[in-house]
Write a protein that binds this DNA or RNA. Structure first.
Length: 287
DNA sequence: CCTTGTGTTCTCCG
DNA sequence: CCGGAGAACACAAG
């Protein structure tokens, strides 16, 4: 489940490998995850190069500068973007195989080969994700659906408080809403609430200013730390080099329902559905 | 039936 | 009554 820290980790990795390298081959599968006209996408990519890779929330944007076109890639739950360097020839004529599982596999829906022999694989087991070719207007329309970026400098407390509003729904539901705040999913919604000492089921309009401030600080702290550790791997998530994230062992509540709270060490963590998502919290440490 | 991210649909309010 | 926002629901595949 790639959320902001995972998608950002992938973005930083891919930027190192594939900016300004010519695309020499494009393989596309006829599947739903490749949106729109396959021929158009193929033509846009073939012979082109990515001038930049940016991110908005959990969405990656590959820039084809000369053509004023963009390739939007959303990983949803099980999508991966993995880069493999061209095989290195060594003395004796042998070559080193990749460290990751053999790619492409049956979930590789898009494979892009670069002039230096490197390959980018878009894999998605559940096929919830998508690859879409977009012009400037389409891109602007998509970007307009996102709320503020929590790791940008402009994410002040005033911006956060305004985005939250005075709604009657749970703070959990609001944190998951991408038009309120960009990039938070189920993992970091629960971790942020724990860090802030707030029950995820609390209604937004019941939060005091101090509680909102604690949540604002918690979101920034958790996302920054998760990014530093290369994100969280529960199942499919891998970085651009196919490696899992290291934040998983630092999770305090997500995936720990029924286990002892790591803060008070006395209360068993509660797990219930909130906003129709599995939600874990400590009934003692969170109020 | 479970998992999660988001597109769609419905409801409500001014 | 209309526009828009808010909230609930549906759907994807393994």
């Amino acid at each position: 489940m790639p959320e902001l820290p995972e998608v950002e980790t992938i973005r930083l990795g891919l930027r190192r490998f594939l900016l300004r390298k010519q695309i020499v081959a494009v393989e596309l599968k006829q599947v739903k995850v490749i949106r729109g006209d396959l021929v158009e996408l193929h033509q846009a990519l073939h012979g082109a190069q990515f001038s930049d890779i940016t991110r908005r929330g959990k969405l990656l944007i590959f820039h084809l500068a000369k053509k004023k076109l963009y390739v939007l890639i959303h990983l949803k739950m099980t999508g991966q973007l993995i880069y493999e360097k061209g095989k290195t020839k060594v003395a004796g004529g042998h070559s080193f195989p990749s460290l990751t599982d053999p790619l492409p596999n049956k979930y590789s829906h898009l494979v892009i080969t670069f002039a230096d022999g490197g390959k980018l694989f878009f894999n998605d087991m559940r096929r919830f994700g998508y690859v879409e070719l977009a012009g400037p207007e389409r891109l602007a329309k998509v970007l307009a659906t996102y709320g503020p970026e929590p790791l940008e400098n402009g994410f002040t407390f005033a911006v956060f408080a305004k985005a939250l509003g005075r709604r009657a729904i749970s703070i959990k539901a609001v944190l998951l809403n991408q038009s309120v705040l960009a990039g938070i999913g189920n993992i970091y919604a629960d971790e942020s609430c724990f860090q802030a000492g707030i029950k995820p089921g609390r209604r937004v309009n019941s939060l005091t200013k101090n509680e909102k401030r604690a949540l604002w600080l918690a979101i920034k702290k958790i996302l920054k730390k998760a990014l530093k550790y290369g994100g969280t791997t529960f199942s499919e998530y891998r970085d651009a080099e196919g490696k899992p994230g290291n934040f998983t062992r630092l999770l305090k509540v997500y995936g720990r329902g029924g286990k002892l709270c790591l803060k008070c060490r006395t209360t068993k963590l509660t797990k219930k559905k909130i906003a129709s998502r599995g939600t874990v919290w400590c009934a003692t440490c969170q109020r």
